[in-house]
Design a protein around this nucleic acid. Structure first.
Lengths: 347, 347
DNA sequence: CTGTTAGCGCCTTCAA
DNA sequence: TTGAAGGCGCTAACAG
């Protein structure tokens, strides 16, 4: 519980103190502070001097109440693991800053689900909210929608909400087809659980689609979360089953990296015995030998676009149901491709 | 510029609408909403029903103005590169959430310095601010201090502000001594620029101290930033100079990783020809072969502690000048130590 | 147990 | 170009 201030300490300088100090009315102070309306140079000078001397700073809450705007955007993200969410956050924050909006961040961790109260408090303090897909139940989102513009990011085929995402299905199909056609693999499996995140579900769909198109049987996905431990576990199962595949399409890089690590230790040769791909292009994907073939998403743009879309809604624009950003497959050694020259990331 | 609402759209339900709908006074509604004061079960029921039916949600700004508290903490961080800042942010957010405080995040990027206006707006909307060390000039911080409790995180020997940091100097000295005594290195150099961040300066101080203690000459630090490109550049210079060292202590892991990458490509053997160490224990440090010897910091705790300290200040406690959290040296193959068994991170 | 009534600090017509 | 005054939505005495 937030502790309430015991004593009403003398709050800092207010618009009244400044007005008094400058010998003008609060209306005038307000005008010079926001550069609104016309104020004579002399008066402006007096006010500015007073502001500086008193260290005056308009109280955000009071202003918000008056203008009926929070001038802030909310963002709900899961744990900040890997570069994905950080990038998203950076894009969002940068765009918000450009729009003179602040961002209120709320994180949802595995052991700390977002209770309705926390979410409500977030919504109550911002002009619009962007929520990562799969984090909140639909009814909670629906409820928020009645209060503020809401945008679902990377929400798969979220229906009924405006949403924005990077392309998944097509890239996953392309990646899978690459494994089949270019590297002649015939028994690929997908490592990941479609119910873990909408993104993963779409990647699995692309994978499935590619196999079907070639008339190949579609093996059941191996399941598992998105963390290194899940990759290790998947590797163990593959080993226990006598390596029943010649290619694995992993839900993300963390899983792929840990999986490769474990398999290589067990003597499996990558990519000769098994081709492996990931998703996200994390830093370690470049340092692994062979380099990890993966998919790079324009995550930062996704974040920026989310902020802009939200702002448009706040200022009156109509919702734009969908939005999909293109991704790019990054081929490296782990799928069997020749290893590209090593270099720092190309921005 | 934030666009002002053109039309005064009919704002959502207010405490008045609810009161009217429930046939009670706004005071009663306020009471049931915050669970304050005593309300008869019957009345409470009516109010709750009305709230639910109207989808009422108290406006944060109005409440803040009335209670004279924003119930929010501000956090200023640089670009969210690597796991360091993400962890810090997660710790901060988690602690804040526990205290029923929201967090307003502001990022400072290289090409987007924090102008006074943006910082002021942040400060004006929160009850306290935590700022990463080295990001803002002292006078800006000083000014903020007059408005709100302020805490500098990882700010080196910041003087005049309450601050909190992970230990750097001692670990750096221990790491350096390890290179000298255990692995018999005699010509170590430091890769990093002390002016880039307070943390780096302290690491260099530890490095320097260790050499002095052994009566060794202290080479000038090689300089450079904290990104992969800086590591590559340092490697180039080392190669150009004919590898004038047998050990390098890098300012962080990104630099160390890129440096190793470049040197290995050039035929340098790590750790035989050159021992290398980093700082932060990023994921790639574990996947590199040999594994990268580095230092792990309790970053998450640092973030959580920052939020708690700030909250204490907001609720009246006195500032606690300093605070230092212990770090841990993680020995792997890159310094010459035997490679530990590979495994997922131990929480 | 419930209602009345001042503010909280700022913005913004409306007059002067 | 300036000031007066009402209102934004909510909290918190203070009465009843």
């Amino acid at each position: 519980m937030a502790v309430r201030t015991p004593a009403r300490e003398p709050s800092g300088p207010t618009i009244y103190s400044v007005a008094e100090a400058a010998g003008v009315s609060i209306a005038t102070v307000s005008r010079v502070v926001q550069g609104t309306g016309a104020v004579s140079a002399a008066t402006r000078g007096k006010v500015l001097e007073a502001i500086d001397r008193l260290d005056y700073m308009p109280l955000a809450a009071a202003r918000s109440l008056a203008v009926r705007h929070h001038e802030a955007l909310g963002l709900v993200l899961p744990e900040l693991a890997g570069p994905y969410f950080s990038e998203l956050l950076m894009g969002f924050e940068e765009a918000a800053a450009e729009l003179d909006l602040s961002v209120v961040l709320t994180l949802v961790e595995r052991d700390r689900p977002l209770d309705a109260a926390r979410f409500t408090r977030l919504v109550a303090g911002v002009d619009g909210v962007a929520v990562l897909g799969g984090l909140l139940p639909d009814d909670v989102l629906r409820r928020a929608t009645r209060q503020r513009p809401l945008l679902v990011v990377a929400g798969g085929d979220t229906v009924g909400f405006e949403h924005l995402a990077a392309e998944n299905t097509t890239s996953a199909a392309a990646l899978t087809t690459h494994l089949l056609d270019v590297h002649g693999r015939t028994r690929p499996v997908f490592v990941g659980d479609p119910d873990v995140a909408p993104d993963v579900r779409q990647r699995l769909e692309g994978f499935t689609h590619a196999l079907r198109e070639r008339g190949l049987e579609v093996p059941a996905p191996m399941g598992g979360g998105l963390r290194e431990a899940d990759g290790t576990a998947a590797a163990e199962r593959l080993l226990a089953d006598g390596l029943p595949a010649d290619a694995v399409v992993c839900a993300n890089d963390e899983v792929a990296l840990a999986l490769v690590e474990r398999l290589v230790t067990a003597g499996v040769r990558v990519p000769d015995d098994l081709a492996v791909t990931g998703w996200d292009d994390v830093m370690a994907a470049r340092y692994l030998r062979p380099g990890l073939t993966t998919v790079r998403q324009p995550v930062r743009d996704l974040g920026a676009l989310a902020a802009h879309r939200l702002h448009e809604r706040v200022t009156g624009a109509d919702p734009v149901d969908h939005g999909v950003l293109a991704t790019r497959v990054v081929l490296r050694g782990s799928c069997g491709c020749p290893e590209p020259a090593r270099s720092a990331p190309t921005a």
